[in-house]
Computed example of a mutant assay.
Amino acid sequence: MVFPRYSQSSNRRTTLGVLLCAAALVASGCSASDEPAAQTTADTAAAATSTSSNTATKATTGEQTATIGLTYIPNVQFSPVYVADERNYLPAGVDYRHHGQNEGLFTALLAGQEQFVVAGADEAAAADSDELQVIAPYYEQFPVVVIVPGDSPIHTMADLKGKKVGIAGFYGETWYGLVAGLKQVGLTPDDIDIQEIGYTQQAALSTGKVDAVVGFSNNDSVRFALAGFATRDLTPEVQSLRAASLITTKKFAAEHPELTAKTVAALFHAYEDLIADPNLGVAAAEKLIPELNEPEQKEAAAQTMDATAPLLPSKTVGCSGLTATQGEALVAELNTIGVDTPKVVPQELLTDAYCGDV
Rank of each mutant, 00 (worst) to 15 (best):
I197K: 06
I197Q: 10
G198C: 10
T200Y: 10
Q201C: 10
Q202K: 10
A203I: 11
S206I: 03
S206V: 03
T207W: 02
T207V: 08
T207D: 13
T207S: 15
G208N: 07
G208Y: 02
K209N: 13
V210Y: 01
V213P: 05
G215T: 02
G215W: 05
G215E: 12
G215H: 02
F216G: 07
F216S: 13
S217M: 12
N218W: 08
N218V: 11
N218K: 02
N219L: 11
D220P: 00
D220E: 15
D220T: 15
S221T: 15
V222A: 02
V222G: 02
V222T: 07
R223L: 12
F224A: 06
A225N: 14
L226V: 10
L226N: 15
L226R: 11
G228K: 01
F229C: 09
A230H: 13
A230E: 14
P236D: 06
P236Q: 02
E237D: 14
V238N: 05
V238A: 05
V238H: 08
Q239I: 13
Q239Y: 13
Q239T: 15
L241E: 12
L241D: 13
L241W: 10
L241H: 11
S245M: 04
I247K: 07
I247Q: 07
I247S: 07
T248K: 05
K250H: 14
K250Y: 08
K251T: 09
K251D: 15
K251F: 08
F252Y: 14
A253C: 00
A254P: 01
A254F: 01
H256Y: 08
H256M: 06
H256V: 06
H256S: 04
P257M: 05
E258A: 14
L259R: 04
T260K: 03
A261F: 08
A261R: 05
V264I: 03
V264P: 13
A265R: 01
A266I: 11
L267G: 10
L267I: 10
L267A: 05
F268R: 07
F268Y: 15
H269N: 14
H269Y: 11
A270Q: 08
Y271R: 00
E272V: 10
D273T: 14
D273C: 06
I275M: 02
A276E: 08
A276W: 00
D277Y: 01
D277G: 04
D277P: 09
P278G: 02
L280M: 13
G281L: 01
G281K: 00
A284M: 04
A284D: 10
K287F: 00
K287A: 06
K287E: 12
K287D: 05
L288W: 04
